[in-house]
């Protein structure tokens, strides 16, 4: 770094590939990726196609799933279920998070119970959800809610509790009415927490919807994965799993961006 000032000659292309810097880094990454694909190919050639299909077969599996519309149908159902579940958990999570975070006695009364449910592996609610809501879409939405609500609720509640000390004392000193403080001070201040909560909530909603497809009515992407796995259609199974990975990644990265855009001043977790 310190020597760079005196440098005048432009580095040659070869030097760029071998010397340190982003070009070399990317060369290494691409080479590693190719090595990975090659290793997969070689491993797949030596075992049954039901255990590990070659990359090419997975690609064909993906094309087949798209051609028959299986993936579109599954993701369509999943999107509807996740949208409904997220809408409910966003509304309940943010509203309850703000109210319970704001009114301390309510927090003391209710939080032990909510904390307890938060410590339970949420999958244990599946029988209860089946008893109350059956196995159809309502049940799936309830399961998604059980996964995403708590992430949103706790993030928002903790946010409200943290900002209290920072701004609220000032507002109190100026004798501003409680509801005005809530609207004008607390709500703007918790935006980053709401955004973080929604992102975590959506990530957990994806877990919930996949598990819903496994253990409740078998539809959506979870149902498709389960069915492909039971039929040992491994190439298509891996293709479907790749779409889950892709969606999970897109959700996370996209919402991270949105978070930085809407609330750039404070990013948590």
């Amino acid at each position: 770094m310190t020597l760079a000032h005196g440098k005048t000659a432009a580095p040659t292309r070869l030097a760029a590939l071998t010397g340190p810097g982003p070009v070399r880094d990317w060369t290494i990454r691409v080479a590693a990726f190719c090595a990975l694909l090659l290793a997969w190919q070689l491993a797949a050639q030596n075992v049954s196609v039901a255990v590990l299909p070659t990359p090419r077969r997975v690609w064909e599996g993906m094309a087949g799933l798209l051609e028959r519309g299986d993936l579109q149908l599954a993701w369509g159902q999943t999107a509807v279920q996740v949208a409904a579940g997220m809408l409910l958990s966003a509304v309940f999570g943010v509203v309850l998070g703000v109210l319970i975070g704001w009114f301390k006695p309510v927090d003391d009364a209710i939080s032990p119970l909510l904390n307890a449910v938060f410590l339970m592996p949420r999958i244990a609610l599946v029988p209860l959800i089946a008893l109350w809501f059956g196995l159809q879409d309502t049940a799936k939405i309830a399961l998604i809610l059980s996964f995403s609500f708590f992430e949103i609720f706790f993030t928002v509640r903790n946010g409200v509790k943290t900002i209290e000390n920072e701004f609220v004392e000032v507002a109190k000193a100026y004798c501003i009415p409680q509801w005005t403080v809530l609207r004008k001070v607390v709500l703007p201040a918790i935006t980053p927490y709401v955004m973080t909560g929604l992102r975590l909530g959506l990530v957990y909603a994806l877990v919930g919807v996949v598990l819903g497809g496994f253990f409740l009515e078998s539809n959506g992407i979870g149902g498709l994965i389960y069915a492909l796995g039971s039929d040992f259609r491994t190439a298509e199974l891996i293709a479907a799993l790749f779409t889950v990975m892709l969606v999970g990644l897109a959700v996370n990265l996209g919402l991270h961006r949105l978070e930085n855009l809407l609330a750039p001043w404070k990013v948590t977790r």
Binding site: D25, I28, R29, A32, A50, V51, V203, L206, V207, V210, L211, F214, I221, G222, I225, Y226, L228, G229, S230, F232, T234, L237, I238, L241, V244, M245, G248, L249, N252, L253
Partner: peptide, 29 residues
Amino acid sequence: RLASLVLEPYLVALYSVPLIAVVPLLVIW
């Protein structure tokens, strides 16, 4: 640094996806 260069993109990706979805594949394996 080399390991971080090669592995980190995949690890970051794995960190943010619902990994529980791969369970049916693990049954096959």
